[in-house]
């Protein structure tokens, strides 16, 4: 759906972007990163690491805002964020929310 109204400074708005790195074999599956990610981009995966835990995986990587809370909360040094630069809102894959009709 083309947007017919746009903010005038749309070109100048920059959103921080982060690249999530997960070190699978260090994870103990405590779930802190999944629970407290402000963008809710992490979920528990079906993979099993060498310790037998399910490490998290990224579902919508473009939404990472490089806040670094997961890296700070992770007790096992198993996740960290790399700076992915900044980008304008066009590059963001929007989250579509649909109201239930009827």
């Amino acid at each position: 759906m083309p947007l017919w109204r746009q903010p005038l400074d749309r070109d100048r708005i920059l959103i921080r972007h982060g690249i999530v790195n997960i070190i699978d074999d260090r994870c103990k599956g405590c779930g802190f990163c999944i629970e407290f990610c402000p963008q809710n981009i992490l979920v528990i995966s079906n993979r099993t690491n060498t310790k037998g835990y399910h490490p998290p995986e990224v579902i919508s990587g473009m939404n990472c805002i490089n806040c670094g809370l997961c890296a700070l909360l992770c007790p096992d040094f198993a996740i960290y964020i790399e700076d992915g630069g900044e980008h304008t809102p066009e590059n963001v894959v929007p989250i579509h929310r649909h109201e239930v009709q009827g």
Partner: peptide
């Protein structure tokens, strides 16, 4: 490492 702290222990977070 890896450290001895249990899954869900807060000490790792304190260390970070």
């Amino acid at each position: 490492l890896p450290h001895i702290w249990c899954q869900g222990c807060g000490l790792g977070t304190a260390l970070t």
